[in-house]
């Protein structure tokens, strides 16, 4: 690590101020991407602004038909929350499937969403549920928020403070993990609200998390695994690396989407 100044603001205003005063400041939440990057000396921010001590960024509540989760809420808190389990059990299950126990007690939903790692689990739920990303200056639909690999519509210094999930009729998640990293090679989040179906894929996209309109249409008409059995995915838009080629990922998307729909309300993890 290179030297940096550590800040632990108590309010969003303090966090904003620390950011504006820093030469090259960056926000720290759970740190599961940032800290390894710093340890490998691949980044050298002047200031680290830890947002996990800001009370208004914590907590889970049900309000106005939404499940609202503070951005600095840990994966384990989301996983264990009775509210989340009641409203969107697949989201609870997804949180419980991230990394290991240590990761889940440090990593946060806002950090994962703002970082937009192409292998992270949360972006698929945020996009697959059509959530709204709330920042310190605006609200953004998930369709507008995720832009590309590690890239979101966030402006410099913009802080994700909360994520509001509309409550679906049913949602499900199926993931296939890399044997080495245990990150998802392919994971598919499916939600159904009335006749509207959203299908979001993480782990696989060359530009990060993305939706599958063809699958959504087919499932909107008929929410059964058979409805998507004949569909395929174009490998051109997918990542290719040591643990999975684009062709393999394309086929796994098909399989994981079908398996997700086979078990509505559940999460399934394969390796």
């Amino acid at each position: 690590m290179y030297p940096f100044t550590y800040h632990r603001p108590k309010t969003i205003a303090e966090a904003q101020q620390a950011f504006s005063e820093g030469m090259d400041a960056t926000f720290l939440s759970g740190g599961h991407t940032l800290l390894p990057t710093l340890k490998q000396r691949l980044a050298a921010p002047s200031d680290l602004i830890d947002v996990t001590g800001i009370p208004e960024m914590q907590g889970i509540e049900e309000a106005g038909g939404f499940l609202k989760i503070g951005a600095a809420t840990t994966h384990d808190t989301v996983f264990a929350s009775p509210i989340v389990r009641r409203l969107i059990p697949a989201l609870s299950g997804l949180a419980g499937s991230i990394g290991d126990r240590h990761v889940r007690h440090r990593g946060t939903i806002g950090g994962s969403t703002a970082n937009n790692d192409p292998s992270a689990d949360y972006p698929s739920a945020v996009l697959g549920l059509g959530a709204t990303v709330i920042t310190d200056r605006r609200e953004m639909a998930s369709d507008d928020f995720f832009v590309g690999l590690y890239e979101t519509a966030r402006e410099p210094g913009e802080i994700v403070t909360r994520i509001d999930f509309p409550v679906p009729d049913i949602a499900c998640y199926a993931k296939f993990r890399s044997p080495a990293s245990r990150y998802s090679i392919v994971a598919v989040f499916v939600s159904k609200t009335g006749s509207a179906v959203r299908v979001a894929v993480t782990g696989a996209g060359a530009s990060g998390v993305f939706r599958l309109p063809e699958f959504e249409e087919a499932l909107s008409a008929d929410f059964r695994p058979e409805a998507i059995a004949h569909l395929t995915v174009d490998p051109d838009m997918l990542l290719s690396d040591m643990s999975a080629t684009a062709e393999y990922r394309a086929d796994l998307i098909r399989v994981m989407a079908r398996r997700a729909v086979e078990k509505p309300g559940q999460i399934q993890s394969f390796k």
Binding site: S178, P179, A180, S181, Y183, M242, S243
Partner: peptide, 11 residues
């Protein structure tokens, strides 16, 4: 070498 971390070297 492409496997210099646990993310790439499958244990």
């Amino acid at each position: 070498p492409l496997a210099a971390a646990f993310t790439e070297y499958g244990m």
